[in-house]
């Protein structure tokens, strides 16, 4: 069977299967289990109404349970076992982690990523959104800045490998150094700062996301409040930082935390660019280096990542819900 046909059949079965499930389940509930007739018609209607939401939620809860909740619990349990998975060692993996300099480096680097990438992407996105708002060619500029969003992290890393390439005929950084007579360097091997060269790739990708969301938020600010501030004597900087930015603070927080969560999940860039060498490891790439070799430690790192992401996630969802109201 051709993949195209397979895809179409999957879609049809999926969509009509859902519709069929909802229709059939509803019918069974109303006609067979709690029929709205007989001596208990009123009671039956009430019971059917109470059961119906659970009936409709069941597929989603079941699938999320199998593919999301079970792996979380399973990973946590696995992290309590040894390398082979046949001996319970309690917090042993976590103890090993905390003593491992590699883990400490990854944790420290991850902290840098979490601080720098969301801040830089949000700030640049905000400034670009404001600057392109009134330009005639602003939409073209926005499209260009948004485009990296469509590139996979691995693809983006490959592009930046060229930018950072050591050969002055390929890498733009070394081309510039060549012109002013400096010898070539490999940016991803400069200790400490190489982290920022890697982070910049993610900033390059995520700025477009921040820009699009913040641009919409800026346009949502009532024009009158801006005019009132102009009459009150605010200059363009005061207008931006005292009137506009505070009014879209909720959106800024949502963008910021959304990027933060993404940062805690990204391993592709580090994996592609350095493979975690030269002191650039972060938690996800550190985890990858143990996967299939020591699943006990890998799952322990996964649990650590989840614990770190969780509070940001909760805050993010709260803010997003507040924005919607």
């Amino acid at each position: 069977m051709s993949p195209l046909l397979q895809g179409i059949i999957t879609i049809l079965v999926g969509v009509f299967g859902c519709v069929g499930y909802f229709y059939a389940a509803n019918l069974v509930l109303d006609k067979v289990i709690f029929p709205a007739r007989g001596p208990h018609a009123g009671r039956n209607i009430n019971r059917a109404t109470a059961v119906r939401p659970w009936l409709f939620l069941f597929p989603a809860i079941a699938i999320l349970g199998i593919y999301l909740v079970y792996p979380v619990v399973g990973s946590f349990v696995r992290s309590l076992y040894n390398r082979a998975g046949d001996e319970f060692i309690g917090a042993g993996n976590y103890a090993t982690l905390s003593g491992d300099p590699g883990f400490q480096t990854a944790l420290f680097n991850n902290a840098l990523w979490v601080l720098f990438v969301p801040a830089a992407a949000t700030f640049i996105g905000l400034v670009v959104a404001q600057l392109t708002d009134r330009l005639s060619w602003g939409n073209i500029a926005k499209s260009l800045i948004f485009m990296p969003m469509a590139i996979s992290f691995v693809g983006a890393s490959l592009i930046w490998k060229f930018v950072y390439a050591g050969d002055p005929d390929i890498g733009i950084i070394n081309a510039v150094r060549d012109v002013i007579g400096l010898s070539p360097v490999d940016p991803v091997q400069i200790p400490f700062w190489n982290n920022f060269f890697l982070m910049f790739i993610l900033v390059w990708i995520q700025t477009g996301f921040a820009m699009v969301i913040l641009s919409a938020a800026l346009r949502g600010i009532p024009e009158e409040t801006i005019e009132a501030a102009i009459i009150d004597g605010a200059n363009p900087f005061q207008l931006f930082f005292k009137i506009k930015v505070p009014q879209i603070m909720g959106t800024i927080v949502v963008v910021w935390t959304t990027i933060t969560i993404l940062v805690l999940k990204v391993f592709d860039i580090v994996y592609t660019m350095t493979g975690g060498n030269f002191g650039t490891d972060i938690l996800p790439s550190y985890m990858m280096s143990f996967m299939f070799r020591d699943d006990g430690r890998a799952t322990a790192v996964a649990v650590v990542i989840m614990v770190v992401v969780l509070p940001v996630m909760v805050w993010n969802i709260r803010q997003a819900q507040k924005e919607m109201r």
């Binding site: 409040t225 009132a228 501030a229 009150d232 004597g233 505070p246």
Partner: peptide, 28 residues
């Protein structure tokens, strides 16, 4: 506008939503 010696009251009030009443009035 700020140097014309005028002040304007808008149909939609145009209050700064993130500032208290006091800060709204004190802004200028």
């Amino acid at each position: 506008p700020a140097q014309r010696g005028i002040a304007m009251v808008f149909q939609t009030y145009a209050l700064y939503p993130h500032m208290t009443v006091r800060d709204n009035m004190a802004f200028a």
